[in-house]
Design a binder for these strands. Structure first.
Length: 479
RNA sequence: GGCGCUAUCGUCUAACGGUUAGGACGGAGCCCUCUCAAGGCUUAAAUACGGGUUCGAUUCCCGUUAGCGCUACCA
C-alpha cells in the first residue's frame, strides 16, 4: 500500500500550487488504495505563523478531499536530530565551525561553492574539542568527492536523473541553533513515516539528489519520486503573493464563489491530462484516470489578468457545475452570498439564475433585485424600449399596471396578458417587456420576465411599476 | 557563473516516426430568442530556430535561443 505525504510549510496562505500538489497526492493515494499523510513542515520557527497554519487547514478543508494522518514536524525534532547524528557517526557528516557571518564569502561566481576545506578535513578529535568548548557549528553532509559516479534516481514523471557529486555542495543537516534543516527534517520524517512516494513540485527536482544521499546515509532505501511541473503566471514568472496578489491563494477562489470540485477539476487539468479529451471529470473519474504517465513535463500557466483575476477555464468549469447542481443544493450554496436572504426565497430564485451565473458570488449582482426592498437608482432612459420613446414607455407602464392588477401571477397567465397588451398598444412584445423589466429589475439584462414577476409577486411588481412611472414622468416632464 | 528541467493555437492540452496536427477554454460570426444567459452550427488560431538520423520527423539526436528551477545555518 503506497503512503504519500503532502508537506506544506506554513509561511503564508495556502498557495494554489500547493493545493494542486495536495490534490495529486490525494488522487494517487485514492487511486492506489493508499494513505495520505498531511505533514506540517514547520521547522522554520522564525517564519511560521499560526494564521498561516489555519489558512492551510481552511483551504484544504474547503477542497473537501480529506487526509488520513496528520503530523507536525516541529514535534518530531528529536527524531530529526537523532538521524543527523547517526549520519555523523558513520562519518558521512562533519561539523563546520565557520561563523554564519562569514557565509557571505562563499564564492558563487565561478562554479558552485562546495565546502570549507579546513572544516571538512578537521580531525575528529579537534572537531570534538571545539564542540565541547561550546563553539557553534552546522552539521554538514559529507558529499562523497572521491567517487566519480553520479548520484542517480528515477523520477516517475521526468525519468532517469543523475548528477555528479562535483555539482553538489556539502549541504547543512543541522543548523547552529541545533534545529534541523528542511532537507534533514523532511528525509528523516519520510523514512520514519514509511513514505513510499514523494509527489511534490519540480522546484525540488534538483534537491532530490541531496535527499537520495541522506536516505542512503541513513540506511534507508529512497522512496519513489514524482515531480510535478510548476504553476506559473501569464508572464512566465512564478506565482507569488507579493507580485500577483490574492489570485495565488486558495481562499480567494472560495470567497469568490467557486465550487470546490470545479477548482479541483481545474487544477487537475494544469499539468495533467487524462489523454482522452475529457475536461469535465467527477471526483471518481479523476481518481480512476489519474496516473504519473498523464503528468506533463512543462510548466503550466494560470491564465489571469488584472481585469479578470480568474482563469476563464476555471470559471467555465464552475459555471458548468453550477448548471448541473440540484436546485436545493444550489440555493443553499448561494445563501451566504446574499445578506439577509431566506432559503425559501432563494429556492425560487435559484432556477432563474442557475444558467446565468458563473460564480456563486454572481448572485449578488444578477439577482439582487429579488432581495431588495427598494431598487438602486437607475437611469430613466433604460425604461425606453427599442425603437420607442418615453411616451411609449409611459403607455406600457400604464397599461401594464392595469393588466398586472388583475391577472393571475403565474407564468402562462402573465405571458398571455402581457402579449395581449402589446397587441392592443400595437407594439412588439419586446417593446412591451423591456420597460416592465427595467421597472422591476432596475436594469435591462435580467432573467426571463414572467418567471421573474411570478417570484416577485404582485405587490412588489406594482410598487416598482408605480415608482418607474413616476420617475419617467418627472424625468421627461410628461403628463 | 555552475548544474538541472522544459519548449504544439492567446491559454490548458492530444497526437507509442506516416493525421487535412485533434479537443477544450477564450475570440469572431450565424441561428434560436421578451433582454441576459443557456443551447446549436460555423470559423480564425500552433509544432521556437538551425542542423542531423530516416523513404518519412511535432515525435529520435546535437546545437542555438528562450523560460523556469536549484545553487541558504528558507522551505
Amino acid at each position: 500500500m503506497p503512503r504519500v505525504r503532502f508537506a506544506p510549510s506554513p509561511t503564508g496562505l495556502l498557495h494554489i500550487g500547493s493545493a494542486r500538489t495536495f490534490i495529486f497526492n490525494w488522487l494517487y493515494a485514492r487511486h492506489n488504495n493508499g494513505t495520505l499523510v498531511l505533514r506540517i513542515d514547520d521547522t522554520d520557527v522564525d517564519r511560521n505563523t499560526e494564521s498561516s497554519v489555519n489558512s492551510i487547514f481552511d483551504g484544504l478543508k474547503w477542497l473537501d478531499l480529506g487526509w488520513d494522518e496528520l503530523y507536525h514536524q516541529s514535534e518530531r525534532i528529536d527524531l530529526h536530530r537523532k538521524v543527523a547524528w547517526k549520519i555523523f557517526e558513520k562519518g558521512l557528516a562533519y561539523r563546520d565551525f565557520t561563523p554564519a557571518s562569514a557565509e557571505e564569502s562563499k564564492d558563487h561566481s565561478d562554479g558552485p561553492w562546495l565546502f570549507h576545506p579546513a572544516m571538512r578535513e578537521l580531525s575528529a578529535a579537534e572537531s570534538q574539542r571545539r564542540a565541547d568548548a561550546g563553539e557553534p557549528f552546522v552539521l554538514r553532509f559529507r558529499v562523497p568527492r572521491e567517487a566519480s559516479h553520479p548520484v542517480e534516481f528515477r523520477d516517475a514523471v521526468y525519468g532517469s536523473q543523475s548528477k555528479l557529486p562535483a555539482d553538489i555542495e556539502d549541504f547543512a543537516l543541522l543548523r547552529s541553533n541545533g534545529l534541523p534543516t528542511y532537507h534533514m527534517a523532511s528525509c528523516a520524517d519520510d523514512i520514519d513515516l514509511n513514505i513510499t512516494h514523494i509527489i511534490r513540485g519540480q522546484d525540488h527536482l534538483t534537491n532530490t539528489f541531496k535527499h537520495v544521499l541522506i536516505f542512503e546515509a541513513a540506511g534507508a532505501a529512497p522512496p519513489q519520486f514524482a515531480h510535478l511541473p510548476l504553476l506559473i503566471a501569464p508572464d512566465g514568472s512564478k506565482l507569488s503573493k507579493r507580485k500577483h496578489g490574492p489570485v495565488v491563494s486558495v481562499t480567494t477562489y472560495r470567497d469568490a464563489g467557486f465550487l470546490p470540485h470545479a477548482f479541483v477539476n481545474f487544477l487537475c487539468l494544469l499539468g495533467w491530462s487524462p489523454k482522452d479529451n475529457r475536461e469535465q471529470l467527477t471526483r471518481q473519474e479523476l481518481v480512476d484516470a489519474f496516473s504519473f504517465e498523464g503528468i506533463n513535463h512543462s510548466n503550466a500557466v494560470v491564465n489571469f489578468t488584472d481585469a479578470d483575476p480568474f482563469d476563464p477555464k476555471a470559471v467555465w468549469l464552475n459555471a458548468e457545475l453550477i448548471r448541473t447542481m440540484p436546485l436545493e443544493e444550489l440555493a443553499k450554496q448561494l445563501l451566504p452570498f446574499v445578506p439577509n436572504a431566506e432559503l425559501s426565497k432563494m429556492l425560487r430564485v435559484a432556477p432563474l439564475i442557475q444558467e446565468r451565473i458563473k460564480l456563486l458570488s454572481d448572485v449578488s449582482s444578477v439577482a439582487d433585485f429579488f432581495f431588495l426592498d427598494v431598487l438602486a437608482p437607475y437611469d430613466s432612459v433604460e425604461l425606453i424600449p427599442q425603437k420607442g420613446d418615453a411616451a411609449m414607455a409611459l403607455a406600457v407602464l400604464t397599461r401594464a399596471r392595469e393588466v398586472l392588477t388583475s391577472v393571475e401571477f403565474n407564468h402562462d397567465a402573465l405571458d398571455h396578458a402581457l402579449r395581449a397588451a402589446a397587441q392592443e398598444l400595437k407594439i412588439k412584445p419586446g417593446q412591451m417587456f423591456q420597460p416592465i423589466r427595467v421597472a422591476v429589475c432596475g436594469r435591462k439584462n435580467a432573467p426571463p420576465l414572467f418567471e421573474t414577476l411570478e417570484v416577485l409577486g404582485r405587490e412588489t411588481t406594482l410598487k416598482r411599476i408605480d415608482a418607474a412611472h413616476a420617475q419617467l414622468r418627472s424625468a421627461f416632464t410628461l403628463v
